[in-house]
Structure formats: structure tokens, C-alpha cells
């Protein structure tokens, strides 16, 4: 579905990605983990066409997408929930959702798609005439996910969807991601919440300083001593229970 091969990307002289290779297969949930500044968002900017990599290849659905503009990549069935949500704060919830179905391919299913979003997140139906900028963080994240789903994607990328949200909302959102996946959509999930991400994902990659430092199945990485030390803290408890408070 998505194949990233030896991608290098730079901001001026600073090399943010130095040869990243990863893939997301059809129907998979793949987690992308790594510390702040590892290059996760940079990789996603490359995949979505906002940043042109200096080297490497990115294929989506078998076709090369490096050099395509972002809207053309969306049209092919790749949607993203960007870091920081990036809603149109001066527009209503419904306008935000409708804009998600802007491509010709998605526009046909606009009404049905909107109905589906309101079924997944009933609160958004109540708030549909409200300006998106006035919603709570959790509700904004729901709109961001809804807007991406409106594009009727085959692959959904989420960049830290749980950042700054209350644990209960995080649970809801992770649950919805699982549900979307069972509906046949592949998922690439960037997360700081390592335990939750690994619990959900079929496979995971660990990105460190612009390179892939590890990969494996979710449960296997959870048991990996390096991962446990680096991401769950030295006193990390066993999988399933919560990590101790710092």
C-alpha cells in the first residue's frame, strides 16, 4: 500500500531524515514511534507531498508519488490528520467536514460520509454549526479525524492524535482508529503514547534521529528491553498496566 524507500529529507543544511525505509501493508495498523525531533512529522510531510525529499522513493498503491502535489495525493486515497489538528478554526464543524470531501473522488459520497462521521462522533452532530476553533481539544481532534475520513481514504495517517487530550478521550480516539481499520482502511499512526500505540498496532517502527532504529510486531516491541528502557522508563510496569507517574 505505502512503500517508503531510503528517503532523505533536509531543512536547509540540516538532514532531518537520512535514509528511512518502511512500509504499510493493506489492512495494517502500523505505529511510528520515536522521541521528539526524530523526524516523524518530517516523514509524513514527505509522504503527503508538503515536503519534497532530497532522495529516495515513495510509492502509494504501487505508483510513485514523489513530486505530486498534496491534493493529488489525497485524490489517490491517502488522507492525513496533521500534527496539531490544523482545523479551519473560523469555519463551522460541518464546513470543516465538507472540505474533507473536496476531491472529485470523495465528493460523490459527501452526504453519506458526513452521516457516518456523525454516527462515530455523535457530539459533532450537535456542534455542527459551531465554529471549529471554539471546540474543546478532544472535539477538535474528532473533527480532524472526521475531516480526513471524509476523503474516503485507503490509507489514513495520524500524527500524534492523542497529544494533550484527557485519557478518556484518548481511549475513545484509539478505539475509533481500530474501528476505522476494521472497515478496511490501512493506518499509519504516529504516537507518543507508546504503550497504547503498540497495543493497537500490528507492527511498529522506531525512528531515532532520522533513521529507523527498530521494527517489529507490537507485542514483540513491548517486550524489547531497549524499547522498554527508552520509551517506557526504567521502572516501566508490565504491559497492560499504566506506566508510573514521573
Amino acid at each position: 500500500m505505502l512503500e517508503v524507500e531510503a528517503v532523505e529529507a533536509a531543512y536547509g543544511p540540516f538532514l532531518a531524515l537520512s535514509g528511512v525505509t518502511l512500509r504499510v501493508g493493506p489492512g495494517e495498523i502500523v505505529a511510528l514511534l520515536g522521541p521528539n525531533g526524530a523526524g516523524k512529522t518530517t516523514l509524513i510531510r514527505c509522504v503527503t507531498g508538503l515536503l519534497v525529499p532530497r532522495a529516495g522513493r515513495i510509492r502509494f498503491g504501487g505508483a510513485e508519488i514523489v513530486g505530486l502535489l498534496p491534493h493529488a495525493i489525497v485524490e489517490r486515497g491517502l488522507a492525513v490528520v496533521p500534527e496539531g489538528r490544523r482545523l479551519f478554526g473560523g469555519m463551522t464543524v460541518e464546513e470543516n467536514l465538507d472540505l474533507g470531501a473536496f476531491t472529485p473522488h470523495a465528493r460523490a459520497g459527501l452526504g453519506r460520509g458526513r452521516e457516518r462521521i456523525y454516527e462515530i462522533f455523535p457530539i459533532l452532530r450537535e456542534r455542527r454549526r459551531q465554529l471549529a476553533g471554539t471546540l474543546s481539544g478532544g472535539q477538535q481532534q474528532m473533527v480532524a479525524i472526521g475531516r480526513a475520513l471524509m476523503a474516503a481514504p485507503r490509507l489514513l495517517i495520524l500524527d500524534e492524535p492523542s497529544l494533550g487530550l484527557a485519557p478518556r478521550i484518548v481511549e475513545t480516539i484509539l478505539g475509533v482508529i481500530g474501528e476505522i481499520n476494521r472497515g478496511g482502511v490501512s493506518i499509519l499512526l504516529v504516537e507518543q503514547n507508546v504503550q497504547a500505540a503498540l497495543g493497537l498496532a500490528h507492527r511498529a517502527y522506531i525512528l531515532e534521529a532520522g533513521r529507523v532504529a527498530g521494527e517489529g510486531s507490537g507485542p514483540a516491541l513491548l517486550q524489547d528491553p531497549h524499547v522498554r528502557r527508552a520509551y517506557l522508563g526504567p521502572l516501566a510496569s508490565l504491559p497492560g498496566s499504566r506506566p508510573p507517574l514521573p
Binding site: P82, R86, L87, F88, G90
Partner: peptide, 15 residues
């Protein structure tokens, strides 16, 4: 209007 608010987000919605 979307482009005026945030052109990158607009591009990512397929505009």
C-alpha cells in the same frame, strides 16, 4: 477561505 486560514491544511484536504 480555507486556503487563507491555513494553506497546508487546505492542501491536505485535497484543495
Amino acid at each position: 477561505r480555507a486556503t487563507a486560514e491555513d494553506w497546508e491544511a487546505a492542501a491536505l484536504t485535497g484543495i
